[in-house]
Design a protein around this nucleic acid. Structure first.
Lengths: 340, 340
DNA sequence: GTGAAAGCGCTAACAC
DNA sequence: GTGTTAGCGCTTTCAC
């Protein structure tokens, strides 16, 4: 089996650079690794040789010798992979990749098969990466907590399992943001405020519901009906149908994700209910589609690109041995459009 | 700088396995690499030792010795990264990752910075990966064609630059599918068929327009108006506005992406035009949202997960030195829902 | 500040 | 079939 790979000319090695620059391999290595103890002339000569030869260090050799891989894994549990079309996830990934693009780290994307979790664990613990980023949707992220003992790990979004251990988390203040969204409805004179909540096996789902409840408590309003959706448009539509069917009147709904809000808006439109005149809606995410819904959605912005970037940043600092706060909270902003 | 990495216990090496199994390192290597020339007893002893020690081969050492990285790069041009929220791209990536999960290959995700293309090129040609998958939106993929001479490369979607060279492409038959969609409209009695086309600097945009035109020619119908969109909902909405403003009457529109169709549907709804009674719509993609639009969208399904998986498969076979067809066309299906 | 030397953990001839 | 022997290209003490 003759691979096409073999016909390619050999890449220039550090040895060749050393010869051309008239120094030893050690010196070349020092220059490449920006060691302080090298004379300016040597640095110059080496850089010229590198330039001339088009030398690129061999990553495998580097990893082998230094025991640092310069690679980071992005672990996506399989069930979450199915949610890949959720713009939130996609843009978090984008943020991660973009931030890493500014560093020397490489991103390895792993879809963690549920049928063979061993494979993922082996990969992660087999010294293939210097750290891992875990993006998970549901409550089954317990298995990854253990990982954190043997590898720097950063979670995107608070994991559901036990708190307070040695895990690092980048998250948005879902409770606070949901409260702000709900208070916004209160401030606009709405008094019977229902909610379409997210899945209750996800922190984001639980927290946004808690925030809604807290804001209503603060306003001394009786909580309206609660329906649970799954963060998808059809899920939001079904939840709105149930809300309407319940017979409990409401004049506003805090919907825990924009995606669900799109579904909900469709149902209201079908019933001839006007937004915001009859029913005001606040969403959550400020995703790509929120400006083009009918009407454009008033929502909470959580910058998912920023979240991805922050996750990457925290992990890189962790790997560098820096002390990093265990919990990084990202700010949210209220975006006022036409649905309230 | 004391990294946390250093406190971890040393992983068991091939040497340790050899000692425990009572064989030489070569034999262990042969077993690990499934070489045929090993006795069953040796295989057994080695596997037991591996199990017992929890041995995992060191990838860097393997790469260094074998000159195979077992890694594949997924290159996403920066401008495309901004389109990450397009469900089509996100699910292609998912398909790639899932297929690779069944192989020994690792996926490295690269967002190719436009300001520093050298960095990407160096990474790709620096022996970090065995091959590259290129997912690109626009016409600036020329730079990647050159890559194909030094590395196995597979493109997702026909690139715009010169044809027929040594590049491998996985694509859907956009022309054929668009023609089928348009013919579907014709068969339903529509005679004044407009189109909202995609960007004309992308193959998918050009080809779908060509297919529409061809089908109309076959049906001996005069082509309706053409408006160009950018594959986003707002772009589709704006294109529909222009179509309506043009004064040229039409009773159907072939819209080159579902995302644009959502925007277009919103505009029609605002104008009180009924779909499909007044205007029939066919989309393209069958994306995640097409069942929940109002009305549910009749569209062309192109399985983006399958496309990702196929790209990965083609590349893996290419790396293995197999002969692979240069162009892999993926099937499409007409999905009939309620917009025609 | 610089070089020599010794590996990092594995694969791949080559002999036996 | 199995072991021995060289490296793969780099980092990293340790002397100087």
């Amino acid at each position: 089996m003759t691979s096409e790979l073999e016909v390619r000319p050999a890449a220039p090695t550090l040895e060749a650079v050393a010869a051309l620059a008239g120094v030893s391999r050690s010196t070349v290595s020092r220059v490449v690794n920006a060691s302080p103890r090298v004379t300016a002339e040597a640095i110059d000569a080496v850089n010229r040789a590198i330039e001339q030869l088009g030398y690129v260090p061999n990553r495998a050799a580097r990893t082998l010798a230094s025991r640092r891989t310069q690679a980071i894994a992005l672990v996506i549990p399989e069930n979450t992979a199915k949610f890949f079309s959720d713009p939130f996830f996609a843009t978090v990934v984008q943020g991660i990749a973009m931030h890493l693009g500014t560093t020397e780290y490489t991103l390895s994307m792993l879809i963690a098969s549920e049928t063979n979790p061993e494979k993922t664990r082996r990969y992660l613990q087999g010294g293939n990466v210097d750290g891992a980023l875990i993006l998970s949707h549901h409550s089954d992220d317990n298995s990854y907590r253990a990982l954190a003992r043997s590898l720097p790990v950063v979670f995107g979004g608070r994991p559901m399992s036990v708190e307070g251990e040695d895990s690092y988390v980048v998250d948005v203040d879902n409770i606070g943001a949901a409260a702000i969204a709900t208070k916004f409805l209160v401030d606009h004179g709405r008094t019977r405020i229902a909610t379409i909540a997210g899945p209750q096996d996800m922190a984001a789902g639980l927290d946004r519901l808690a925030g809604w409840r807290a804001a209503l408590g603060d306003a001394k309003l009786r909580p309206g009906a609660v329906e649970i959706g799954d963060f998808t448009p059809p899920g939001g539509a079904a939840a709105m149908e149930r809300l309407l069917a319940s017979g409990q009147p409401f004049d506003a709904v805090f919907v825990a994700s924009d995606q669900m809000a799109y579904g909900a808006l469709g149902v209201l439109r079908d019933r001839g209910l006007r937004v915001p005149e009859d029913i005001a809606i606040v969403g959550f995410d400020n995703d790509y589609y929120s400006t083009s819904s009918m009407p454009p959605l008033t929502t909470i912005e959580q910058s998912s690109v920023a979240m991805g970037a922050k996750m990457a940043e925290v992990l890189v600092r962790l790997i560098a041995g820096e002390t990093v706060e265990k919990l990084t909270m990202l700010p949210t902003t209220m975006i006022e459009r036409d649905s309230v």
